[in-house]
């Protein structure tokens, strides 16, 4: 167990922080994904054919191309793209998009493609009659969305959101290729340095199992909470 010692002699502290990084990047990614999903789900449900097409293009591409490729594309392309835009505005220096943001964005965009489908499905399943009822009751459109649609949508979507979260959490392991020090990257470095890959990759597997187990429990609790009254 010396390998996992906490401090400069072992990899315990490094792996601990790497686990926090995994959680942080997964959390950032899923929220970026929700944000994108809110936009693209409304595109997909809109009456405009163009918007439909944009929405479908997004979900098709990012659910159809390997995560690893998307990550590489962002990794190699993001700084270039940001600098290109900056140059238009007259700034000619180097701007680095750091590994955390690159990782969170690339995973977030993939996660968003899955969330879009979840949101769309959830909105469609809400009874149309409710909209009419709320109109009769004189609710404003905004209130209608915040008070009636969104809470219901969340409840219906929770099991699927739980799935998307699991996918997102596991996908973060792939951003290790960009150098962000999360669980997989740290295990990779430790395995290389100690020449004990079996131990460190198995330990990484245990850490991921722990995280997926924990989130499952959490989502079950949430589901129970929100299904009160049904």
């Amino acid at each position: 167990m010396g390998l996992l010692a906490y401090g400069d002699t072992g990899w315990g502290d490094e792996l601990f922080f790497a686990t926090l990084m995994t959680i942080a990047v997964a959390a950032a990614a899923i929220f970026i994904g929700f944000f994108l999903a809110a936009i693209f789900a409304s595109f997909k449900l809109s009456k405009s054919k163009t918007l439909n097409l944009i929405g479908s293009f997004y979900t098709t591409v990012f659910r159809g191309v390997p995560e690893l490729l998307v990550i590489y594309l962002f990794f190699f392309g993001s700084s270039g793209a940001v600098m290109y835009v900056a140059r238009i505005f007259g700034y000619d220096g180097y701007i680095e998009v750091n590994a955390f943001l690159t990782g969170a964005l690339s995973i977030g965009i993939i996660s968003g493609a899955y969330s879009t489908e979840v949101f769309r499905g959830a909105i469609q399943s809400i009874n149309k009659g409710q909209f009419e009822a709320s109109q009769v009751l004189g609710f404003k459109k905004k209130i209608y969305y915040y008070k009636i649609i969104i809470p219901q949508m969340l409840r219906l979507a929770l099991p699927n959101i739980s799935n998307v979260w699991q996918i997102t959490l596991k996908d973060t392991s792939l951003i290790s290729v960009t150098g962000l020090v999360e669980i997989m990257r740290m295990s990779y470095v430790a395995a290389g340095s100690t020449r004990d890959p079996l131990f460190f990759y198995s330990f990484a597997a245990v850490l991921y199992l722990f995280l997926t187990f924990l989130s499952l429990k959490l989502f079950n609790k949430l589901e129970n909470h929100y299904s009160k009254g049904y």
């Binding site: 926090l20 990084m21 942080a24 940001v82 220096g93 701007i95 998009v97 750091n98 955390f100 943001l101």
Partner: peptide, 27 residues
């Protein structure tokens, strides 16, 4: 922990100063 996370969350875009950055593999 909190510092590490905050630093990585907010220092998202860093503009290089007058220093030289040297890339190495470390493996």
């Amino acid at each position: 922990t909190i510092l590490t996370i905050f630093a990585s969350l907010f220092l998202t875009v860093s503009v290089s100063a007058d220093s030289i950055r040297i890339g190495t593999e470390g493996a």
